[in-house]
């Protein structure tokens, strides 16, 4: 298993007794960008939720290895400390909790996990300033409550800002393009690209090929009925854009 960041084996999971993921297999190596595409209801958001540890989902089988750790046994907070980041499709509004307190708690929790002292006020503010610049996020948002009253674009930029601060090894971008106009999309995508290195990896979950014009994937997977039914290179995304999902659905449904 050398040089594998994420190894998903036969992952099965569901919600409220309903099975949604029916055996996912996926291998992600450092530096790779994977796109996961698929029609509505295929299980894309369930996959990201299960990987991030959302307690709403139940894991029914399979395993996930994250750089040598049994990911499924870790709490959501420890997954974050170990370098997993989920950019939410619908970032949650938290009235009464300011962005700055939220980020300070997040940063210092991670430092504590690695037995480091909390960041000084000055260093923290400097870090915020640096990272905000990556997604051109307005300073004023810092004093506002988390995501409260943010526009759709601001919410998504705020997700990438948090990603920049936490410096994850694996980022899962769940429908980051939804609700974005073309300018916001460009800012968000360029933020993601700026954060890209040879050692970190990205899973981009998306409906449309559009985002993949900006964030170039190395691999494209098609998720359908809870399984990855087709994998290919970037050209697969273009083919989907042209032909839709029906040919995949037909192929899979006929096999069954």
């Amino acid at each position: 298993m050398d040089n594998i960041l994420l190894q998903v084996n036969d992952l099965r999971a569901g919600i409220d007794g309903k099975e949604i993921l029916r055996g996912i297999n996926l291998t992600v190596r450092p530096g790779e960008v994977h796109a996961i595409m698929g029609p509505n209801g295929s299980g894309k958001s369930t996959l990201s939720g299960v990987l991030a540890g959302n307690p709403a989902y139940t894991v029914n089988g399979g395993s996930v290895d994250f750089h040598g750790l049994d990911l499924l046994s870790l709490s959501p907070e420890d997954r974050s400390h170990e370098g997993l980041f989920l950019s939410f499709q619908y970032p949650v509004e938290i009235p009464g909790v300011s962005m700055v307190n939220f980020m300070r708690a997040a940063v210092n929790a991670k430092r504590k996990y690695f037995n480091e002292e909390p960041l000084s006020a000055g260093d923290f503010l400097k870090l915020m300033r640096q990272k905000r610049a990556i997604v051109e996020l307005d300073n004023k948002l810092a004093s506002r409550s988390v995501n409260e009253g943010f526009s759709g674009g601001e919410k998504k930029r705020n997700e990438i800002f948090q990603m920049a601060v936490l410096e994850p090894r694996l980022s899962i971008l769940d429908e980051t393009d939804s609700g974005l106009d073309i300018d916001a999309l460009r800012i968000v995508a360029s933020g993601v690209n700026k954060l890209k290195t040879d050692s970190n990896s990205t899973i981009v979950i998306t409906h449309y090929q559009r985002l993949l014009d900006y964030i170039k994937p190395d691999f494209v997977h098609i998720l359908y009925k809870g399984r990855i039914v087709y994998s290919g290179g970037p050209e697969l995304a273009l083919e989907l854009e042209e032909r839709g999902y029906d040919w995949i659905k037909e192929q899979v449904d006929n096999q069954q």
Binding site: A56, P76, E77, S80, V92, I94, A105, A109, K110
Partner: peptide, 16 residues
């Protein structure tokens, strides 16, 4: 408590 907010915070590393 809003479970969604709770998970959001935990996913950023803030202990439960």
């Amino acid at each position: 408590l809003d479970e969604r907010a709770l998970f959001y915070m935990r996913s950023r590393g803030i202990p439960e």
